[in-house]
Amino acid sequence: MRKIFSTWWAGLAFWLAAGLLASAALTCLVSLFLIGLPHGWDTATSWADVRLRFSWIAVFLLPAAATVHLVLRLCTRDRGRAPGAGAARPGSSRRGGLHR
């Protein structure tokens, strides 16, 4: 499963799909809230208003999802093989790196 999301575009597609699903869920929650308000039934059940709410929420969540993907990608990126960055150098012992 990790190998599927190892490419940058697969990870980006995952986060954008998550942003779209979150937009749909928030749109449904706002509609449920509006149904409970006086005179909110018309706007809560109007397809044009639901589509408008979805687009407004998606305008904010999709760039946020892309930013999350970028930040996670930069934080988990292999930082390269800097000298002294964790791994011991192979030729550092008297026996040429062979430990017996």
Rank of each mutant, 00 (worst) to 15 (best):
W15T: 02
A25K: 06
A58R: 00
R89D: 15
L12P: 01
S6A: 15
T67F: 14
L16H: 02
S55Q: 11
L70I: 05
K3M: 11
A13E: 06
H39L: 06
D49C: 05
R94S: 14
F14Q: 07
A24H: 04
T7M: 06
G80W: 06
I57C: 03
G91R: 07
D78Y: 06
A87R: 15
I57H: 02
A48E: 08
A88C: 04
D49R: 08
T76Y: 09
R89Y: 12
L98Y: 14
S6M: 08
S6E: 10
R73S: 15
A85K: 07
L72M: 08
G40C: 01
L37E: 14
A17Y: 02
S46D: 15
S46Q: 10
A64K: 05
L61C: 03
L61T: 01
I35R: 15
A82K: 15
I35C: 08
C28M: 12
T27S: 12
V50D: 00
P90W: 12
F14L: 15
A48V: 13
H69W: 15
A25Q: 09
F14D: 06
V30L: 14
A85S: 04
L20C: 11
T76Q: 09
W9D: 12
R53Q: 11
V59C: 05
M1F: 07
S23W: 03
G40L: 03
R100I: 13
W41Y: 00
H39M: 05
G80Q: 01
F33W: 15
L32E: 15
S31P: 00
G80C: 01
A82P: 00
L70M: 09
V30I: 09
A10T: 04
V30R: 09
C28G: 10
W9S: 14
P83N: 02
R73A: 13
L74F: 11
P90C: 03
F5M: 02
L37V: 08
L34S: 12
K3Y: 08
T27D: 07
